[in-house]
Structure formats: structure tokens, C-alpha cells
Amino acid sequence: MRHVEHVMGTAVSIELADPLPDADLTTMIGDVCAWLHEVDQRFSTYRPDSEVNRFARRELALADCSPDLRHVLDACADLWRATDGYFDAYAAGPLDPSGYVKGWSVEVASQRLAAAGSTRHYISAGGDIRMRGHNADDRPWRVGIRHPWEADKLSWVLTLTDAAVATSGVYERGGHVRNPRTGAVAQGLRSVTVVGPDLALADAYATAALAMGEAGLTWLPKLEADGYESAAVTDDGRAYTSNGLPAAV
């Protein structure tokens, strides 16, 4: 069963491949969508009354924040350290943890699906994907990575079962990623894809590498030790992959 939900400023595509009654699948999809809308209410920086904004305005003390928000704040701090400052929830000035929240919310949604009995599904939030098990054909999921210049073509095809894939690029919302150290629009890399166990981390790593520019090409391989593979394309069209990237032949 497939479903598309417009939430968090993007389109979230959900596919459940479990051989379960439609009624059960529909309920599961409904739960996922309710959770994503809840996240949007609580964590969107576009909503003045969101928990994130109330905390940013100091109307809410850290001790009074929800466990979810405290987790998000901790994770953003950890990622700031892990990425040498290139993943920065304060890059634009006021607190904006959106770069972590989207991947994390999908990660949690997938965990909830698994807890409810779905072992075969994927959730794609605007192109950042968390998947489990096999597809409807009983094969590993096949995930294409969009070609960074030709919107209707793919530059790689990955075969995955339990994994997350996140891509950051400058072609969709041009120049929205900035180097937090200089404030300048990131240059050097056109597209970075990170594959690994956790979508929130994969997404943050991809964003950080894009912000680094070409230096990201020497930073990305360090993630392999933690189980994160990568693929990147430079502004001038050079393509790079890590050795363990699960690309289909």
C-alpha cells in the first residue's frame, strides 16, 4: 500500500509491503501521518508557538522541554562536534534544528511501524529515505540516487534492506546550504548521498559534507568506520563513491 502525505513542507511517500489486511495497513499509515504532523506542530520554526520557538525565545526552560526536544538538542550538539562544526543548528542565527528533525522523525516513524508489525516498508521524506525488509517483489529495496543535473535520470542505484539513504544537494532549493564558518553559500559539491543505519545521522552527515565543499570528499570516508557509506558529485561533474557503497551492478 502506498500513500503520499504533504507535511513538514515537503511530500512524504510511504510504502508498506507487508502481506497484512488493508485495514491494518491503513491504520499504520494513519499513525505515521499523525506522528509527522505532530512533529511539524512541535518542531517547525515556521510556527511561532512551536515548542522549538518557545524554547528559542526562552519562554520554555530546558528542564521543561519535552524529552523529544531535549533529545534533538543533544543530538544537534553531538553532530556539531562530530562534523567539526559544519552541522550547525544555529548556522542561520536562531535555533533551527530542522536539519536533524526531519530525518529523526522518519526514523521514529519507521520504528513505530516496526513495533506495530510492519517489517517491510519505506518512508521517504522529500528524498531522504528509511526502509526495512524487502519490497513487494520479495527483493531488497532498489533506491535510485537522482542525477544532479538531469532530474529524470539516476546516477546510482542502491540495493538495500534495513538502511537509511539521505541526499543533500544544491540543485533543488539552490544555495540553501551554507558553510556555517563563513556564512557563504556552500560551493564545490553539487550532491552528497550518505547511506547508513540511522536516517537522522545520514541526513546530517550529508548536509555537513555539502557545507564543507570539496573538503567533504576527504571527510566522508571517515564515516565508513561507523557504517556510513557515501557518494558525491562535484560542481564540475566528478563523481566519487566509498568502497562499501551498496550500488547495484
Partner: peptide, 10 residues
């Protein structure tokens, strides 16, 4: 393919 990963679209 089953899904496509790319820069986040609106």
C-alpha cells in the same frame, strides 16, 4: 527502482 533519493524538494 522503488524510491528515489535526492535533494529535498518542496
Amino acid at each position: 527502482v522503488d524510491a528515489v533519493s535526492g535533494a529535498t524538494f518542496t
